[in-house]
Design a binder for these strands. Sequence first.
DNA 1: TTCATCTTGTAGCCATAGCTACATATTTTC
DNA 2: GAAAATATGTAGCTATGGCTACAAGATGAA
Lengths: 160, 160
Amino acid sequence: MASRTTSKARQVVAGARPETRQAENFRQIRREHAHEIAEDYVEAIADLSATLGEARVVDLARRLGVTHVTVNRTLARLREAGHVNTKPYRAIFLTESGRKLAEECKRRHQTVVAFLRSLDISEKVAEKDAEGIEHHVSQETLAAFVRHLAAAAAGIRSSR
Amino acid sequence: MASRTTSKARQVVAGARPETRQAENFRQIRREHAHEIAEDYVEAIADLSATLGEARVVDLARRLGVTHVTVNRTLARLREAGHVNTKPYRAIFLTESGRKLAEECKRRHQTVVAFLRSLDISEKVAEKDAEGIEHHVSQETLAAFVRHLAAAAAGIRSSR
DNA sequence: TTCATCTTGTAGCCATAGCTACATATTTTC
DNA sequence: GAAAATATGTAGCTATGGCTACAAGATGAA
Ligand SMILES: [Mn+2]
Ligand SMILES: [Mn+2]
Ligand SMILES: [Mn+2]
Ligand SMILES: [Mn+2]
């Protein structure tokens, strides 16, 4: 029978804390995933409202690459979360909290895209990667991106 | 009744392609999410095997911050995907494809962490953000990170 | 060797997030 | 104003990915 290291021996060798911290990291990322859809939806609703005057279910479905059924069900949850107001067969409107969230997400999205662009990443890839990365960027990392952008801008100014 | 812009009018105004491209971005990110768990698992299994000599269900559960039930079910899927070999009540082993995937993920993970560290982000935050960001970094972006790291290293060399 | 503890497995619950198929409402067109 | 087209809503399916509660195997100590 394969001999195996016991729990106790392992704890003595490695210590318990690092494992706990890593577990906490994974938990936090799962929480971020839960928020991710809400963030992309409110951002899309704000954008469609600004561009087309109003956001409709079909528009969201096209934009997000899902069917109108999925949009409907997600909107129901966003309504319960207090981010949107919907009435049957009517356009979708953001609540105050939805607007605020959309505002934040848009700024963060733009920052991430600009940061990637500053590393000479092509526009298409920057847009695509940002769409996923944005949801996992902490305040500290976002601030570092902004610093980097400011430094790059200063570099260009001084070298022209 | 609220008048609304027609689909046709909208297409004329905005063009259909940008929406389609954005939808494709979102689809790709959903695909990445589907791979994400497999990536974190094989990376954890490789790491535990190297550190403790073998990877057990309880170890994975502790590491990933989930219950052993969740680990069991995910392992069943990883087995079907051909990434691990498991036998009841035995340690978990990576297949050749699992080992290869783990290798790639580990390198990418380390690159992302090193890149964030090079922006003066604290080690804890870098580790945490990398755990989420890593799954959404394209080849092009990863290459840009490596370039940036090389440039930073060269800068240090020339200024000492 | 037996007993307690630890580990693994399984049954079955929930929520999320996708889908097709179909029904109904609204809008546009003729 | 009726018909056609479009948009929205709903029923009900799948898979993922969490969980608790309980059952059973494996290991270590007495
Ligand atoms: Mn996004
Ligand atoms: Mn976004
Ligand atoms: Mn990860
Ligand atoms: Mn990782």
